[in-house]
Design a binder for these strands. Structure first.
Lengths: 252, 252
DNA sequence: CGGGACTTTGAGCAAATTCAACCATTGTGG
DNA sequence: CCACAATGGTTGAATTTGCTCAAAGTCCCG
């Protein structure tokens, strides 16, 4: 089965990496090598990047970036998934993004992260001191361009998310979320219609501006319509992509 | 009165600019000179930037960027205000930002703007062909850094807006909007507590994920509490900043 | 197998929307 | 210069979508 390659690829690469990194160049075996800023560098230049690099192990549920901390590091997510969120004084939470392999974290504002980050599953992240990376950027303009391109993409995604949060109904939000998550996982080598959901319903709710109950209700509603199949709590199969797409884009 | 300097500065600079630009360097008199990417360049290097530059007149209500067009230009807003928005198939609209003097527009994704932009009042924008500016960036790394910094700031603002749209109540949204608009205008040389609102209630609603009616109701509600004064439809005076700040940050 | 965390389902509720009417401001042509 | 149309803003009543509160069902994982 073709689709079985995704779950395997998503749960194993960190261990694989750890085994080989002692001998080979650590970036050679990095599952995110081709996806992230590192792709902007020639293999012989990766050395300087690698010396600045530290692999940090993060356990499932651990917060490795806190909203209040000074932004001293960039983090490269090499595998698995991470959630990025902000909190309101009374505990209300908005998840501003889920990050997967190749995503860069740590773009800061006024010296502070203005968000927290937590691992959805145990994973390793590739960490760079901000100062060192910033200095590296002076010598590798391609990397700076890449960074700018990544920021542009994130900005476009953020605007799309504002549209979702400000103007879409609960059903439209869930449909949009399932499709964009599916697209993302397809780009990372997964199946087109099997969507892995490493986050809880409550995470999804906090990402979409809904409550867990509503997320759950909409999932069952879409299931009853035959548009999705709930394989397990953390896997959804898209059955009627066209219907979901119409829903997601507001074609009523 | 100190605060009178803002309305003057916000309504006149374009004409001022037009008068002097024939003689002086066009960027010298640009009201956004110190605020935008241009600030990253020495005065003697501005020449190359200026040759790429075209001043484009935009009438009030005119759309000068369309969601569907290829992203061929960057635009520098030198004065006044602009709204940036996205549309859903059935006409629902999400305004993703209001831009003021010094703001740059045109960061693109996959070759297209993914948003439209419309002038709130008649104004002139400073336009650069994308290709030329991109080439310029190779020679002026400071400018590229500045661009990255601006994108980072926008990203942080976008995350803040996601929090607002996903988790704040109508009252909290309006309070946040008034305060952030006030801050912004203060940074542009305006008064701390007199907030100019060059956009309609409907624009505010589409920015905050509400309806015009709700925006109007919340304004009157805040007025009744004595926290704001409605000087006119397009000017609000902040009377109880602390109360608004508590409201905006969710301190119930 | 048992217990805690997560998810689903149900019933009632509330914040914000919809629909509708009215008011204010502005600009235009008679 | 004024009447009045047009646009934008406010207010009210009814409605609805999604939320809150509550309880029961599932799924892991030890």
């Amino acid at each position: 089965m073709l689709s079985s390659s995704l779950p395997a690829a998503m749960s194993e690469p960190v261990r694989f990496h750890a085994v080989l990194s002692a001998k080979a160049h650590p970036c050679d075996t990095c599952p995110a090598r081709a996806l992230s800023i590192c792709a902007a560098m020639r293999i012989e230049d990766l050395g300087r990047l690698a010396t600045a690099r530290v692999t940090q192990r993060v356990e499932a549920g651990a917060t490795f970036i806190d909203e209040s901390e000074p932004a001293d590091h960039y983090f490269n997510i090499t595998a698995e998934a991470v959630k990025v969120y902000k909190l309101l004084a009374d505990g209300r939470r908005q998840i501003t993004g889920f990050l997967f392999a190749g995503d860069l974290l740590g773009i800061a504002f006024k010296g502070g992260y203005a968000y927290s980050a937590e691992a959805l599953t145990s994973l390793s992240v590739c960490r760079f001191p901000r100062r060192q990376l910033d200095r590296l950027l002076d010598d590798f303009p391609m990397m700076e361009k890449r960074l700018l391109a990544m920021a542009s993409n994130e900005l476009a995604a953020a605007q799309e998310q504002m549209m979702l949060l400000g103007r879409k109904t609960a059903h439209e939000r869930i449909a949009s979320f399932l499709l964009s998550t599916a697209d993302r996982q397809e780009r990372l080598g997964g199946s087109r219609d099997r969507v892995q959901l490493p986050m809880t319903r409550s995470d999804i709710a906090d990402y979409l501006g809904l409550t867990t109950e509503t997320v759950s209700r909409v999932f069952t509603s879409l299931k009853k319509r035959g548009w999705i199949l709930l394989k397990s709590n953390s896997e959804v199969q898209v059955a009627e992509r066209d219907a979901l797409e119409e829903l997601a884009t507001g074609l009523e």
